[in-house]
Simulated scan of single mutants.
Amino acid sequence: METCTSSVSIFTDWLTQHLEELVDDLLSVIGRDSIAASPLYGDPALQAVLRSETTLLVARIFKELESGLPSTVTSPEARHIARLAALHGTPLDDVVNAHWEAYAVVQDAYFRAAKEAAIPPDSALQLLRSACRRLLEHTSGLIDTVTDEYMEALRNNETDENALRLHAVQAVLNESGAQVGQAPYDLDAEHVAVVASGAAARAVSAYARERGPYAVATFVDEDVVWAWFSSVGPRQVRDAVLARTRSGEMGIGAAAKGVDGFRQSHRQAQAAYRVCGQTDQTGTCFADVIPESIALADLDSTRGLVQRQLGRLALDGTREAVLRETMVVYLESGQNARAAAAKLGLTERTVANRLQAVRTLLPPSAEPSSLELALALRLMPLVRRNGGARTRRADPVPAG
């Protein structure tokens, strides 16, 4: 019994350590097969909600397994996902299929855990039998729970004002309608779209109410808002929201006219929101982050660009970070070392020494004054955030 308890602990420790990787795999599978067309997968704010709730749900299953006492997993996260799916028109069959696909991904992780955690064969066999049986029971129970919650949400959505407004908005976005039903909003106007979450979402909603007939906003989750504004520019929207709060995340599209502009600005707001999530900004206008939004759409190519242009300057060390910052300020200062030194609070000689150190780290083909190098430096934080930088020992920063 002691060996069994020890094996369970080792097994669940391995699963917990690999939880984030497992959730990545799980969402990749269901996004490819079951809910690819759903806003739950396509919208960055809703995708973040789905990821958070899925992580908590899987962690609950691991915790129940670790306890050694078989019990029903009660999951508010599964209920939340069901309500979201109903609100956004994701078919119930797709939601159920997503649970079975998730079951297969987690079961594969169980077998990998038993192998990589080096659990003795006899204990591993017994453990896997128990774990897979309980996982099957949990999945069946969760599907029952989700089905009930989904059907109840559908009934509630038939009379909920926010849900009706969202469905009218979705009809326009999906090119199946040309009117935003419950809202007195002119689709022929010039639109600025917003996607926001957290405190920023509440501030956007409040600002939309103030704008009256010149705005429409709808909660697409308990803490996420989609909105459109007319007769106001992107930066005015940003400033109005940030005057209310500096918390949450918000992406703002460029102004665009008519029904096509309504859709285009929304896509841009989603892209800007995705950049917010990668750069820890509260509010971002699409026009200010076009390179970053393109880079996030193809991270492999972005990593290649950064590595080709920066070479060893892309290493994840304190020295390289200081040198990159110096190079960014130098380029922003029109390649004027004196101006860069003033901005950095350094002597001109120190800046010159750092620039010389930068040149020794760059690939021979890189041009220190090129637009490509400036772009690589700008995109470097995104690459680091997504696991693209290499680590190294600390080296001294050149001094004056």
Rank of each mutant, 00 (worst) to 15 (best):
L136Q: 14
G387C: 10
T326P: 03
N97W: 12
Y330S: 01
G181M: 09
L362P: 01
V225R: 02
T218G: 07
A366T: 15
T147Y: 03
A203G: 01
V358E: 01
N386Y: 05
A255S: 15
A193K: 00
A269Q: 02
D186L: 02
P91K: 04
T279Y: 02
L296C: 08
L46Q: 06
A78P: 09
R202E: 15
L135H: 02
S369E: 12
A124H: 01
D24T: 13
I61W: 06
V194G: 04
Q107L: 13
L299A: 13
D148E: 14
E101C: 08
Y110R: 05
N386H: 15
R385S: 13
C132Y: 06
T12A: 04
E77F: 02
A339S: 11
V232S: 14
D316N: 13
A287S: 15
R359C: 05
S52F: 09
A196L: 01
R129N: 09
R133M: 11
E66H: 15
L50N: 05
T318V: 13
F262H: 00
L377R: 02
F286V: 03
L65G: 04
E249R: 14
A37F: 13
L27Q: 03
L344P: 01
R390Y: 09
Q170R: 15
A340Y: 10
S38I: 06
Y110A: 03
D33F: 14
V224D: 04
I30L: 12
S176Q: 14
A86G: 08
P44H: 13
S265G: 10
T145P: 02
G42T: 15
R319V: 05
A256Y: 04
G277V: 12
V146E: 13
L323S: 01
L375H: 07
R165T: 15
V329K: 03
A227Q: 01
S301I: 03
R267E: 15
Q268H: 07
L346T: 00
H138L: 07
E190V: 11
E210L: 08
L305R: 11
Y207W: 06
A342G: 06
C285W: 00
A48I: 08
S293P: 13
R384Y: 05
V96Y: 06
S205F: 11
G334S: 01
T302S: 06
L142K: 07
Q126C: 13
L323W: 00
E249W: 08
R385Y: 11
G198M: 09
D13P: 06
A201E: 03
E149T: 15
I35K: 01
G141P: 07
S71Q: 12
L371M: 12
G141S: 06
S333W: 04
P44R: 10
A124Q: 01
W228S: 05
R51Q: 10
P398V: 01
A339G: 12
S369L: 07
R392E: 15
E292C: 07
V289C: 15
S130I: 15
G388K: 04
L313Y: 01
A201L: 04
Q126Y: 14
E325F: 11
K343W: 09
Y207R: 06
E348G: 03
T284V: 14
E64S: 15
R134I: 07
Y185F: 15
E190P: 03
Q182K: 11
C285S: 05
H99Q: 14
E64C: 12
L305P: 08
A341R: 00
A200L: 09
S231T: 12
K343P: 06
A201F: 02
T360M: 10
I119A: 02
T279H: 03
V358T: 07
A254P: 10
G31N: 05
